[in-house]
């Protein structure tokens, strides 16, 4: 379980995250939604120790992320941020194999190679393994990064807007893949999502943030309601049941 306790972050004069307390249960897919600037990414960065917090604590299965050894955490929790731009010229295989670094420290075992190959297969990257990242399209690159994070094989996997750069087909495939990771492999997946309908269709739990704080949390059925969405986004939407899913219409 990820326990977030009274976490705040001030950046200069602005408060990005104000005293958030939240528990993310083991297993399943949790989506964090909310308008731009609500503090979603900041929260995720603090949970994954990439950003120091101004106040509060975060524990992952009882490990305090600020004090636990970083290499130990790297075997429990991984994160993929948005806008990954790696300037080094690495091949897809290199990148994915670096996902095994927490275990092998660079000396890859046959098992590491197997896991890397599995992750590459999982994301349909077999044809691209020897290509350099700077020769790939945005979507291919993103898939390579996701493969790297999956190759890290941690119980908790955090994604900050993983659907960036994806077309419709790849976006759906990605969400299905994350669902499978949660159901079949027993992972805990936490996502920041902008597309409410993806959140609604694929999550077990939704956290809605606004102004640096958690506004609502609950199952998709509890969150996907007109008045809740209005209070989070200041926008009127229409929500309908389509084949048992709650779908928002906000395009017109």
């Amino acid at each position: 379980m990820i326990e977030i306790c009274n976490v705040s972050k001030t950046l200069g004069d602005t408060i990005a995250v104000r005293g958030v307390s939240l528990q993310i249960p083991r297993k399943g897919v949790t989506s964090i939604i909310g308008p731009n600037g609500a503090g979603k990414s900041t929260l995720l960065s603090m949970v994954s120790r990439l950003l120091p917090m101004t106040a509060g604590t975060v524990t992952v299965d009882g490990l305090d992320v600020t004090s636990a050894p970083s290499d130990l955490l790297a075997k429990r929790l991984s994160i993929l941020r948005q806008d990954n731009r790696i300037s080094s010229r690495l091949t897809v295989r290199d990148l994915v194999e670096f996902g095994r670094y927490p275990y092998s420290k660079g000396r890859l075992t046959p098992e590491d190679r197997e896991k890397a190959a599995a992750a590459i297969g999982f994301l349909d990257l077999e044809d691209l393994t020897e290509r350099f990242l700077d020769e790939l399209s945005g979507g291919q690159c993103q898939r390579a990064y996701v493969a790297m994070v999956l190759c890290q094989d941690t119980d908790y996997v955090l994604f900050d807007e993983p659907l960036n750069n994806f077309d419709m087909k790849h976006a759906v495939n990605m969400m299905k893949l994350l669902r499978r990771a949660a159901d079949d492999l027993g992972k805990t997946v936490v996502l920041v999502l902008h597309d409410l309908n993806f959140a609604s269709c694929y999550s077990d739990y939704i956290v809605a943030m606004r102004d640096g704080d958690v506004a609502h949390q609950g199952t998709p059925d509890e969150i996907m309601r007109r008045e809740i969405i209005r209070s989070v986004y200041d926008m009127d939407v229409e929500i309908q049941d389509v084949r048992g899913r709650k779908i928002t219409f906000y395009y017109t």
Binding site: S45, S48, L50, S70, S78, L80, N84, F98
Partner: peptide, 14 residues
């Protein structure tokens, strides 16, 4: 090499 991939990626990998 990991450090060359940037602070966030490197930290994520421990």
């Amino acid at each position: 090499t990991l450090a060359g991939m940037g602070r966030d990626v490197a930290t994520n990998l421990g």
